[in-house]
Design a protein around this nucleic acid. Structure first.
Lengths: 205, 205, 205, 205
DNA sequence: CTGTAACCGAGACGGTACGTCACGTCTTGGT
DNA sequence: ACCAAGACGTGACGTACCGTCTCGGTTACAG
């Protein structure tokens, strides 16, 4: 017996060139005109492709964009581990400072923002995002924290998911909602405070 | 000196009934059909109002929705202070647990999500949000933290903005991106870890 | 009590310039590209009008074309009577020869053909055609035949509808189906044979 | 010598089952959904055939339909002669009454209408129609008229093409354009008037 | 107490994009 | 080689809303 999906298109016959052109067009366009003005028609036109070819393979504008990100992520060396000098606070600060810088680059800011908000509205997309993009990155972060647990820098019983949320959550939040300036200093303060806790905030010095 | 907007409509002549009908229709509709399918035409029809009446007073769909929230917030007793029993961790846990519950209510979830993502794309709206909705709530939170500083529960030199981000950021983040289960236990762990810091996470017990 | 048509658009607010531009564009286009390749989009583009403006006022491509003909017919002096020299055969021959010539003109042939076949498929359109275009012309023809009845050229008890069909039907038929050459000679033979009957076909000479 | 069409497919290898399925599907579908909504895709799907198999053998939708008619006509006994009792008027009345009845049957009306209008727009098709379907029927009619010429019922110098047009043209016209009721009485009046001529219309009695 | 001007509902308008359908061409794999 | 299946680029469909623009009707201030 085989898994029988209703009228699922035959992936074997798929045109790889069109697929790539669509993904590239989607990524480029979202950076140029923003997510709100991104249209399937626009993507199709830019990619030199029929609209139906998009509708055949993706359920929504957001799904296309997501795949575009995925292709990009898989193409890059995102699989590289976080720095591990033995000094957790220094390493985290380095990473968050880099993230701050990345957020400041419009070429990343616009499409990332689009993906973030699209995910907020589409649970199916959120699931895909969690599985394919968030989980691998989260695993890298966990690895660094586990290393810190091994050296005794962090307690062994620390809930790593909470820990990661505590360090990266506020940063992502401030970026997405523009609820405050996104500076290297903020990244430093965040790491320091998260590591030491509110009660001992000045202990880092 | 007064800010002179070009051909600004005369607020005095404004029809209050229409304004309220529009705000109510916007809020109701966003809960029924979601933000993406919310349309000015739909709001106008539901409110029994001409489209022009909306375009006359609001620059965008998001602005209408924002005003709808504002009206709701001002109508409620959101201005009440956070609980202050003298035990900061207990009080914050109470507050975050309530927030978790609120996020679980679809009547709040859908419109709030809409506002959140709209803000992410519209800096002007973000500014309004920061000013009119976020700042007052943040002030209440700061007040509670200052109280804790006075009693010595928190260091006097703690950066309260970072502190607030550290406690509420991860929660809001997990809600918006559905990056994990939103449970009371998570709220508790968050408060405990944030207060004690990652290095001393088990010190709260 | 008033006649309550369901969601009928308010004719009063109608833009007359757009209406005329649409009609003209439709007529021109059908002559240029033929009925099969005539599209609402094309008409709208040529007329400088939104598609919705067409859909708002006409139920179908054929209805637009029909109105275009109607406007043309009303604009011209089609209301002029048929010639009446006292010699019925001569007069009918004159008229049919003119019709043959008209059918040979591509500027009339293409759109007329389009209207004719559209009518064949759409009973509602057929009704409109019968009422607005065919009936007036038929009345003019009847008038000429009645005059012949008065002078004794035709019997008083002749069924004029059958008579008209007999004279014009074959011509229209041969034109539409291209079932034979459309010549002045054919027009002459037709009139002679119809007037004298098959049994006495040579009696006209 | 044979007419050599460029890259004509090898008729020998043709799948007869597919051909018949296509023709049947085309005929059935045109009766079900009408000519306008008849599509190659629909025919292919209904016939269980690839689209290419249709495009390989027919140049257009109309050509398929025409072949479907042809197959039907050749399958039936349309080659039978018209009745010849010696009374021309009676015989023609019988034939036209039968035709009137046929036109009233939706199973014939819809596809016939489709073919008729398609012919009006496509000269190539018209030529095929004239050759393959119209000419044989016209020959049968002429045969009956020649018989009447032999018995002296009709003049020997009568133009038979004009005569046939005069009798059948008005009927076909009224059917196609719905320009009046299609009744047995109309058939009778038509025959009588055509035979006797307008000038002696009452002479048949 | 009465213009008159702004606001109001309604909705037509020129547009853009939607998501679907069918076109005619093409490629793949099976017989 | 022909066939079924169906992906492809193309283009039109008919619908939904966009934001702008009259159109009368109705307030509410100004002369």
């Amino acid at each position: 017996m085989s898994t029988q999906r209703e009228s699922a298109p035959n992936t074997a016959r798929r045109n790889e060139a069109s697929r790539r052109a669509i993904l590239m067009a989607a990524f480029d366009l979202v950076g140029e005109v923003g997510y709100a003005k991104l249209s399937i028609e626009g993507i199709a036109a830019r990619a030199g492709v029929g609209k139906q070819t998009i509708y055949r393979w993706w359920p929504s504008k957001g799904a296309v964009l997501f795949d575009a990100f995925l292709a990009l992520a898989e193409g890059s060396d995102d699989s590289s581990a976080l720095p591990d000098t033995g000094d957790l606070q220094a390493d985290l600060t380095t990473v968050l400072r880099a993230t701050v810088e990345e957020f400041g680059d419009p070429r990343f800011d616009t499409p990332m923002r689009a993906l973030s908000t699209e995910i907020a509205h589409d649970p199916a997309l959120a699931e895909m995002y969690a599985e394919r993009l968030d989980r691998p990155m989260r695993e890298l972060k966990k690895e660094r924290l586990r290393s810190a647990q091994r050296t005794g820098e962090l307690p062994a019983d620390l809930d790593l998911d909470v820990a990661i949320d505590l360090v990266w959550g506020p940063l992502h939040n401030r970026w997405l909602h523009r609820s405050g300036p996104l500076t290297p200093e903020y990244a430093e303060a965040l790491v320091a405070t998260a590591l030491n806790g509110l009660r001992h905030a000045s202990a880092s010095e």
